Amino acid sequence: MAARKGGGSAKGGASSKGDWRLRLLGALVLAAIGAGAWGWWHLRHWTPERGVYAVQGVEIGADDGEVSFSALKAIGADFAYVDASASAFARDPRFVENFEAARAAGMEVGALHRYDPCQPAGTQAANFVTTVPRDARLLPPAVELDMLADACPVRVSDARVESELMTFLNQVETHTGKPVILKVTPPFQSRYAVAHKLDRNLWLVRDRFEPAYGGRPWALWTANSALATEVAQDGLRWVVMQP
């Protein structure tokens, strides 16, 4: 009888030890889930410190829906880059409305073109200059360089991409009277190294952490590509200027 009691006690001790381990594992899993949720929430609501980056703003387009620019101004947006045109013929359907609303809210305004290496530079430049008014008060124009030529229906060499891009820049700069800012994504920079070849200010993109892939100082930085605010819960592209 004594032996059976001893065996039962040992079995009960092992069971208690196993329960303790399960409880510890459960607590660790819950802690990890909580930390992940907090990290996600923090990233969605994070903007760089105003004391370091005094001038901050947004990139805005039709995909962002209807946005109150006075509300954007109230939460700290000093400027807005408005999506204007893309490729050879596409135009942002809300460009005029967003452009005028941003100005009415007292924000500095610039316009952006999404470059398409598959389309002729001259046609793309014509699309931009017929969409964006010539106005000395505008911020320097910006061109987004993200699309690679790999998907073009007709092969476009890297050298051709670079020469056509220069043609586009020259024509847009003639229209605006200001040098274009290159909004370069990591894949485009990795492929064409335009940050090293073209003497233009850079606009780089990286959530939360300051980007360095341009190899030289940037002028603009998209620091949060999906900022959640009371203005737009779906996420805004939050941009800061170099101090």
Rank of each mutant, 00 (worst) to 15 (best):
S15M: 14
Y115V: 04
V96F: 00
D146N: 12
G6E: 14
M166H: 13
A31T: 12
N170I: 09
P187Q: 10
A111V: 00
L202C: 06
P117K: 01
A104K: 07
P117G: 04
L138Y: 02
E59G: 05
A101P: 03
L148R: 07
K178L: 10
G215R: 06
I60M: 06
A54N: 10
Q119M: 13
P93G: 01
E210W: 02
V231S: 10
K197E: 12
A151S: 15
L30Y: 06
A125N: 07
L198C: 06
A32D: 08
W203T: 07
A219Y: 13
H45V: 03
V154Y: 03
T176K: 04
R23N: 11
V194R: 06
E173T: 09
M166D: 15
G51N: 12
A219L: 15
E230F: 13
G214H: 05
A3W: 11
P93Q: 01
P120E: 00
W20S: 15
M147F: 10
F168T: 06
V109D: 00
V239L: 08
R208V: 13
L227P: 10
R206A: 14
A37F: 05
R191I: 04
A149V: 02
A80V: 12
V239M: 06
S68E: 07
P133Q: 02
S68G: 13
G36S: 11
L139P: 00
P211I: 09
G51M: 08
V52R: 13
R103T: 02
K5F: 07
P186Y: 08
T167Q: 11
E210K: 09
V205D: 10
G61V: 02
P153A: 09
I60K: 01
G51P: 05
M1G: 13
A88R: 14
P48D: 11
A101Q: 10
G214T: 06
G18N: 12
G106R: 02
A35C: 11
D234M: 12
V82P: 04
N224K: 05
N201Y: 09
P211F: 09
R200S: 06
M107T: 05
A102N: 03
F69R: 02
A223G: 07
F79T: 07
R191D: 08
H196C: 07
V67C: 03
G12K: 15
L139G: 03
P211A: 08
L22A: 15
P187F: 11
P140F: 03
P93Y: 00
R200I: 04
N170R: 14
K11F: 08
P186T: 11
G12D: 14
Y53R: 08
V154N: 10
K183P: 04
A32Q: 11
A54S: 14
V154W: 03
G76M: 08
